[in-house]
Amino acid sequence: MPRFIVSRLGKMALILVGIIILNFVLIHAAPGDPASVMAGEAGDADAAFLQQLRERFGLDKPLPIQLLTYLSNVLRLDFGYSYRQGMPVIDLITDRLPATLLLSGSAFLISLVLGVAAGALAASRQGKVSDSVISTLALLFYATPLFWLALMAVLLFSVQLGWFPGFGYESVGSGYGGLERAADILHHLVLPALTLGLFFMAVYARMTRASVLEVSRLDFVRTARAKGLRPRVVLVRHILRNAILPVVTLAGLQAGQLVGGAVLIETVFAWPGIGRLMFEALEQRDYNLLLGIFVVSAAMVLAFNLITDILYRLVDPRIGAAA
């Protein structure tokens, strides 16, 4: 296992370098001068300032040198300065990262646990009413635009019913501390985490249902039944354990989408994470900030992937042994 993690970390590092290079390419491929891309909105920065930027990032040097400079800067977590927000990009991001981790982490957990449970339930009652209800809901949420669902959730649960706050991370100026504050944040978390989770819950429920039905037909399930095991034991111990493997793989692949979804959800709920920051960067055409967020969100996805890979290995003895 440690060897596997090391090899995965090596691969992750390669991908990350690839992403940084992609970023570099994008800065240079963008219409206009790279310096003005870095400065923010093209055109309105003054010439002396742009010259200063060029010198600092070596933009007058040959491209390979520029790339090396850029790489070494980013690897030292120096993403440059956001002139719009008046702060170094990395500070802006680290400031906002915890909120995003909280949101996407809880949405991931909710969707995986509830999705697998719903899918397994639907499969075990194939063709019955509960199956139809779960399958239909999954189909619906699978087709619903996240941001719209979020807006409708605000409309219903916040504006109409007033059950949950529809805005922000915590009550501003409440002066809460400790547990009270945690409870307040949790209260704010419910709507965004649920709406973000719903789409993925639908994905996992559909996948689990299909996978459970598939595995149910395999020979070893017949063996288990021939042994006289009760259906619940057969389902949990034999079917579900095997059926969950493709779901875990899918969850890993979906991690990227989860982060993308967080951008939309944070925008709607004014959740102060890096997604919201991305929206602000877009509005202000702060490309330097935008690209910094892009690298960090990619790194987040890679971390999610690593976690699901480790999970997979814990469940499946075959893979570790083959190495």
């Binding site: 395999l218 020979d219 070893f220 017949r222 063996t223 288990a224 021939a226 042994k227 006289g228 095991l229 111990r237 034999h238 354990r241 095997n242 469940v315 499946d316 003895p317 075959r318």
Partner: peptide, 18 residues
């Protein structure tokens, strides 16, 4: 399993791999 037990054709797939 108790009064009638059964074995199958495909030993490669008849056991739970996990």
């Amino acid at each position: 399993g108790r009064r009638i037990a059964m074995i199958f054709q495909e030993p490669m797939t008849a056991l739970n791999p996990l």
